[in-house]
Design a protein around this nucleic acid. Structure first.
Length: 845
RNA sequence: GCCCGAGUGGCGGAAUGGUAGACGCAGCGGAUUCAAAAUCCGCCGGAGCAAUCCAUGCCGGUUCGAGUCCGGCCUCGGGUACCA
């Protein structure tokens, strides 16, 4: 009987459900918590989901087989802008759109046969999750973890609404097309910057995380040591006494040629009030938008204020004060001094505006003239660890490293009293206020007499009103007729509700903790949290390497501080794996006006459309609806079965890299699974085949190691080898069935349905899901002889087969006697003979 | 711009500093078949009759030996604080 995935997969899924196989329970087994980043309910599942959740499922089933009590939950990251956009574009309510999508996606996910404990499922927009998140907010507020301050947002002056960065395209609002302005609003912030040092230091302990992610976070937090000091105003009539600056290169102070302030600097604001041309310039700077990328890549723009300050080391030396569009108010003091010889941005700025460029140091041994000549065209920015010659130094030695010079400069400033060494972080507080409807309301009211007052816990949850419309831009909460009316929990007087909702990163910063007890009427249940935390293996996209993971690390600390998590859960994710995307070729034709028209892969055969029109093939890119290079997992599952989709997602490409979906690859996966089924179905007479048994034990060792190392593609390759070995072997009867059962066990985490079929055909007891993980017999893994390649001058020329434990001198004798070696040596004695036991021999002639 | 990655046959990829190309796809040849599909077996980086030579994005370096380590580039991808 040929293998029929559709009936088989449904049957096994029901068997697992009936046996309650995947319900996580606290028992005497050691626990293992595996979590994949939960999905945003966009509408339908895509191949990226299949890949992500299959990887997590492999880990979950593997650990379960190894005897762990596994927690493997699923939920929905359900608040966010797309639901509001859908409501604006198609009408309807974000809630209905979201829950509709969740229902669809849940039904699409279930046929994949994932070992998920569905009883713990929740969506972040559920009233119960909102309620507990608001309770956390109030606890954090109490604990001093939250503050309110002013921040800038993108403002669309036509739609009269705040725009997200992705809604600003080339400096214009995506719907109105109006040039975006910056606007200041008072916002709620989580005080993550209080934890800068701790979040940085704790990275060292995250040994289960990829180094690249730790490095990215380290750079993001951005600890720096520098000098903070003031430039005094040349005369008091300028309207300020001094400008405070921060620099990480105080050693370049003698190369200073200007002072630059952020357009948002208080001194500039004051100045702008009286000088329209200053105000105009600042307005222009603000049109760049709020993203760091836009600000950094925009052409350098400056405005000479005419103000001047004195150099701290030479009162006679006057420096001009400029406004510069690349100086950020958020970092340091919002003011810098420009040292164009040793900073590329300053160099560009100085060149553009004709400001002097004076070298502070040059390459080792250079004199002042040489150093000045070198920096005339381009900034000289060697590594700080490199020794250079200071031609305009003022502290430390003439010949020293940048590092030493910075230390000497700080010491000099402190001794002379004009500045002090300061440690700063790039990490800023986390602004969570969003002027949008579809999010968790911030549980605060604004009272006419008491000011800003937290809502009382007994009044939670503060739920979103349902009667809202999206026919006009802006936050529907602002214009709701009654929802804002509240009474002050403090004085009972009239108050207005906060209409800002929380950043959706808040929702995803603690869902992992909520899964440990997803129905509790407090944010967590401590007994459950204590048992299940931490997440032993977290899996998700590299795009979350910084923000989501950093926020979660902060949130876990905040939950520890407020008693919702045990001290040991400060770092909530013991191990992290970041997987790559699923990509596909793009098929394109052009319309009569030459504009691209995209076509779905299922409409393209052999590079042609159904009507014979050839398509242009654009190299693989991330699957996206707009490019139509999407393959719907639902179609793959219905035509090939879930196991095929799962197997293909694990084959070939290493999990951390992107994988390209190809129809041929899917078919190959399907063919292989059918072959395994046929191998199991076939009964053969005959007996032992020691070689096959050895192959099986080698496969156990290799597959175990590969799964543990997240090298699923290598595990797949080993399983191909084992299946090939079964096909070629003359083994029969029980010895053959025993190998087939090992094959079933090893394949079970990846293709669980087929594994159950093979297990049962090969005479396995019960279900393979309960069968445990096989152990290799060490005796079967040993080889008596090894093949040693012989290199001559580093090139492989011959090989010899020797006993595994043959002593070096015997090997050397064999090598020298070898024909090829003799021929190459041509009677000469080798200069050197390198024998790496068990690996290689190199003859240096 | 800045930070972090990736780049190996026609394709996806494998390789504790030690035989470059495991395993798979495609292709080619064969078996089976009236024929095809499916299946099974074999070959399969390039050049060369061969000995050999060339080959891991590019340029240099360290080493007995470099895909792997170091320096400098190029291209592509992720992030850049209100996309999730």
């Amino acid at each position: 009987m040929p293998y029929d995935p559709s009936s088989s997969e449904a049957r096994w899924q029901k068997a697992w459900a009936d046996a309650d196989s995947f319900t996580a329970i606290r028992d005497e087994r050691p626990k293992y918590y595996v979590l994949e980043m939960f999905p945003y309910p966009s509408g339908r599942i895509h191949m990226g989901h299949v890949r992500n959740y299959t990887m997590g499922d492999v880990v979950a089933r593997f650990k379960r087989a190894q005897g762990f009590s596994v927690l493997h939950p699923m939920g929905w990251d359900a608040f966010g802008m797309p639901a509001e956009n859908a409501a604006m574009e198609q009408g309807g309510h974000p809630r209905d759109w979201t829950y509709g999508n969740i229902a669809t996606m849940r039904e699409q996910l279930k046929p994949l046969g994932l070992s998920i404990d569905w009883s713990r499922e929740f969506a972040t927009c559920d009233d119960s999750y909102v309620a507990q998140q608001q309770a956390l907010f109030l606890d954090f507020l109490d604990a001093g973890l939250i503050t309110r301050k002013s921040a800038q947002v993108n403002w669309d002056p036509v739609d009269m609404t705040v725009l997200a960065n992705e809604q600003v395209i080339d400096g214009k609002g995506w719907r109105s097309g109006a040039p975006v302005e910056r606007k200041e609003l008072t916002q709620w912030f989580f005080r993550i910057s209080d934890y800068s040092e701790e979040l940085l230091e704790a990275l060292e302990g995250l040994t289960g995380w990829p180094d690249k992610v730790r490095l990215m976070q380290q750079n993001w937090i951005g600890k720096s040591r520098g000098l903070q000091f003031s430039f005094a105003a040349t005369d008091a009539s300028q309207g300020f006494d001094a400008i405070e600056v921060y620099t990480t290169r105080p050693d370049t102070l003698m190369g200073a040629s200007f002072v630059a302030l952020s357009p948002d600097h208080p001194i500039i604001r004051t100045l702008a009030a009286g000088r329209p041309e200053v105000a105009d310039f600042c307005e222009e700077c603000r049109r760049i938008g709020t993203t760091e990328e836009a600000i950094e890549t925009a052409p350098k723009m400056g405005f000479d204020t005419g103000l001047t300050v004195r150099h701290p080391l030479d009162p006679e030396w006057q420096l001009p004060v400029w406004i510069a569009n690349f100086v950020l108010m958020d970092y340091g003091t919002g003011a810098i001094f420009g040292s164009p010889a040793h900073d590329e941005r300053d160099h560009e700025f100085a060149t553009k505006y004709g400001l002097p460029i004076r070298a502070t140091f040059g390459e080792r041994g250079m004199d002042l003239a040489q150093a000045d000549a070198m920096v005339a065209k381009a900034a000289y920015v060697p590594l700080k660890s490199e020794v250079v010659t200071y031609v305009r130094g003022f502290a430390g030695k003439t010949e020293q490293t940048g590092e030493a010079a910075v230390d000497a400069a700080i010491a000099h400033a402190e001794a002379e009293g004009y500045g002090k060494g300061v440690t700063k972080f790039r990490l800023r507080d986390w602004g969570i206020s969003r002027q949008r409807y579809w999010g968790c309301p911030i549980p605060v009211v604004h009272c006419e007499t008491c000011g800003t007052v937290p809502e009382a816990k007994e009044n939670l949850p503060v739920l979103l009103p349902q009667d809202v419309s999206f026919d006009q831009p802006g936050n529907p909460l602002d214009r709701h007729p009654t929802w804002r009316q509240a009474s002050c929990p403090k004085c009972g007087g009239k108050a207005l509700r906060e209409t800002d909702t929380m950043d959706t990163f808040v929702d995803s910063s603690w869902y992992y903790a909520r899964f440990t007890s997803s129905r509790a009427d407090t944010p967590t249940n401590r007994a459950d949290a204590d048992y299940w935390m931490n997440v032993d293996q977290y899996i998700g996209g590299i795009e979350h390497a910084i923000l989501h993971l950093l926020y979660s690390r902060f949130f876990a600390r905040a939950m520890v501080k407020t008693g919702h998590l045990p001290e040991t859960a400060k770092e909530p994710f013991n191990a992290l794996f970041t997987q790559g995307m699923v990509t596909h070729e793009i098929y394109m034709t052009r319309d009569t006006r030459g504009r691209p028209v995209y076509h779905l892969p299922e409409d393209v055969t052999d590079g042609k459309l159904a009507d014979g029109t050839p398509v242009e093939v654009v190299p693989s890119a991330k699957m996206s609806k707009s490019k139509k290079n999407v393959v719907d997992p639902v179609n793959i599952v219905s035509s090939f079965g879930a196991d095929t989709a799962r197997w293909f997602m694990l084959s070939d490409s290493p999990p951390e890299r992107d994988v390209e979906w190809t129809a041929a690859g899917a078919e190959a996966a399907s063919k292989f699974l059918s072959r395994v089924y046929r191998l199991a179905e076939e009964t053969r007479g005959g007996g032992e085949d020691p070689e096959l048994t050895r192959a099986a034990h080698r496969a156990i060792a290799d597959v175990t190691k590969s799964i543990e190392g997240f090298a699923f593609n290598k595990a797949v390759a080993k399983l191909y080898e084992l299946a090939n070995a079964v096909g070629k072997s003359g083994a029969g009867g029980e010895p053959r069935r025993e190998v087939l059962r090992i094959l079933a066990q090893l394949m079970a985490p990846m293709v669980p349905h087929l594994a159950e079929e093979v297990w049962s055909m090969a005479g396995g007891q019960g279900m393979v899901v309960d069968a445990g993980w096989p152990e290799p017999d060490p005796a079967m893994l040993e080889d008596d002889t090894v093949t040693l390649p012989i290199q001559i001058n580093g090139k492989r020329r011959a090989e010899i087969s020797v006993a595994k434990d043959m002593p070096k001198d015997q090997i050397e004798a064999l090598v020298l006697a070898d024909d090829t070696v003799q021929r190459f040596l041509d009677g000469a004695t080798p200069k050197k003979l390198i024998v790496v036991p068990g690996r290689i021999v190199n003859v240096v002639a």
